[in-house]
Design a protein around this nucleic acid. Structure first.
Lengths: 337, 337
DNA sequence: GTTAGCACTCTCATCATTAGAGTGCTAATT
DNA sequence: AATTAGCACTCTAATGATGAGAGTGCTAAC
């Protein structure tokens, strides 16, 4: 059953008001605050209908209405209006982007996470670039002291991984260089996850002489291809606690315990669809623990590959319009720079 | 004024009881629970005296007594009895130590932090090895592609720091090598914090030609010397919230906000005395924000230098005896392996 | 010096009461 | 036929009164 224009406007008013006040919204309030040209009584009737069709609910008989999850969903899909982001917000984002080159990529991601949480006032989860999806660019082996070297792996997205390795005593420098050059030739341009163990074995076969050295070095490469997770960065963990829904100590504790479980959050963000912004309202979240929270999730790109995930975690009564606009803007800027 | 033996025993009983119950302790409770062979009335009199001399306080007239900070201090200094750690606890620690070699140092520290928090049930802060106190071993500059290089700094304790730098177009390879060799000669063996900015300036003066390149490279070194903090690892952030003193939502929020301020925690732990275990009770903490918390702090060593700090953060009503014994044991094992 | 006895104090939980907000229904109005 | 005014009714949350319980401090007896 489609909603009448009037019902839509009333639903919109209820959602907006509740998002800001966190208090059940009554018919009088709406009549007063939103100029719909209707009396409280009419609004009451309409609200009763909206409740019947499942868009609103009543905490108890003599309280106002609050949106149901279905109500929020309808709001997000059809009623939400674009919001403008302030120049301050834009500035904060640009600042981080400009400082990008001076930082290691991890610091950069951390910064993004912080900015997002501070301008949204919710908690942000940013899943860092996944090394897996980066391409092999260069391997270097740096002799440190007799018998010990440092293998350095560099990807096209700017990852630098290193590992101390043992260099067999007898191996002369030229031979080492040859081996490294060969590895570089074989792997150049391949994304790390396509460098399978069979490919690695093949290379090992070609360079049979110094298997000991190779093992360690190739392990570095293999690890990079395996590592399921990029790092997860949390920002503004405590922001979300300022929401009135976290008046209760136990609620706080269980949420915090949740936020400590990196693996859990990883699986949550990992399932983000590869394009567009996804809004997950309450029960729409796959995990039991998040049934009373909402998330705005999206992916961002580095060097044209889908490579990281961004999530904003807030109460179901979240400022969807604002958060979506902000995340949209940020990702756009991230992808294009 | 010295306390009589009887007063000491009563004070001890009050502290112990309060540490476990978190409730003001009355004279009757002590008479019943601790076999001092005294009637409640006698104990009442003694407790009144102890209050007078500042070891105990009364939340309100008709409640029991709780230890004052001075009371805790006296307890920690003179009344505390050795506690034995369980085999499970020992096992948990040994397990981590054995896995040490397989891990990067940061993961290892993180593990330590987790174990500590889980066996103490408080929050643990472990300050990783401070690069500052490590000695300069080697600097390498690796050309990556035209105009871009990677500066790599290696310390004697196994730290490896790197930074992407720009290499001026005109600079030929030999010249670069010379510069790097010179830097290595100048800094070899110095601990990073003794490489002051005046020394850096001097080196800069000697190598005037390529100030641009130098700046970036020397920044890497300077950062390493400056970085007040090694990384800080928190474990069991939520543990402390289980303490009854954190019934209040605002209290929780302000503590959590505090724990997010890495710099603040850094300065707190950084001031740990270089040897032995330090107990900081409430107001003894230098920072306003920690006036109602207690800490057990100590340092641990890597390669024979004092290099990291461990802290356990709990309510003033902390199980000092147990925590101290555990930390003592852990540090002993850390230093000797 | 120690203890029993007792009046007194303070807190905390419980209960009843009440003001306020909001609904739902009916009847009047447009 | 749709809208609105009016009003009884419901539920919550705040307020205040009451009483049990725990513990003290003092006095007098041991």
């Amino acid at each position: 059953m489609a909603l009448s224009e009037r019902k839509k406007r009333i639903l919109q008013a209820v959602v907006r008001d509740y998002i800001h006040s966190a208090e059940p919204v009554g018919s009088r309030t709406i009549a007063r605050r939103y100029s719909l040209g209707l009396s409280p009584a009419t609004i009451r009737n309409e609200m009763a209908d909206l409740e019947e069709s499942g868009y609103l609910e009543q905490p108890h008989t003599s309280a106002g209405r609050i949106p149901s999850q279905m109500g929020y969903r309808f709001y997000v899909d059809s009623l939400m209006e674009k919001v403008f982001i302030s120049t301050e917000e834009v500035m904060a984002i640009e600042k981080i982007l400009h400082e990008r080159k001076e930082k290691e990529i991890e610091q950069f991601i951390q910064q993004i996470s912080r900015v997002l949480s501070s301008i949204t006032n919710y908690t942000s989860l940013v899943f860092g670039p996944i090394i897996k999806k980066s391409a092999f660019k260069q391997l270097k082996v740096l002799p440190l002291e007799p018998g010990v070297g440092l293998a350095i792996l560099i990807t096209d997205t700017g990852f630098i991984k290193h590992k101390a390795i043992q260099i067999p005593m007898g191996l002369d420098e030229k031979e080492l260089e040859k081996m490294v050059a060969y590895i570089n030739r074989r792997f150049y341009g391949l994304t790390m996850d396509t460098i399978t163990s069979s490919l690695l074995k093949e290379v090992k076969g070609d360079l049979i002489k110094n298997v000991g050295l190779l093992n360690e070095t190739l392990n570095l490469i293999e690890d990079a291809g395996r590592s399921q997770e990029g790092k997860l960065f949390l920002g503004g963990t405590t922001n979300i606690l300022n929401q009135p829904e976290f008046r209760d100590v136990n609620r706080i504790k269980s949420l915090l315990a949740l936020l400590e479980e990196e693996a859990l959050l990883g699986s949550l963000l990992g399932s983000a669809s590869p394009q567009g912004i996804e809004v997950r309202i309450g029960e729409e979240n796959k995990l039991e623990e998040f049934k009373d929270l909402s998330m705005v999730v999206t992916t961002y790109k580095v060097v044209g590959r889908n490579i990281g995930t961004i999530g904003i975690l807030g109460p179901i009564r979240m400022e969807y319009a604002r958060v979506i606009t902000l995340v949209e803007h940020l990702v756009l800027r991230l992808n294009s720079s």
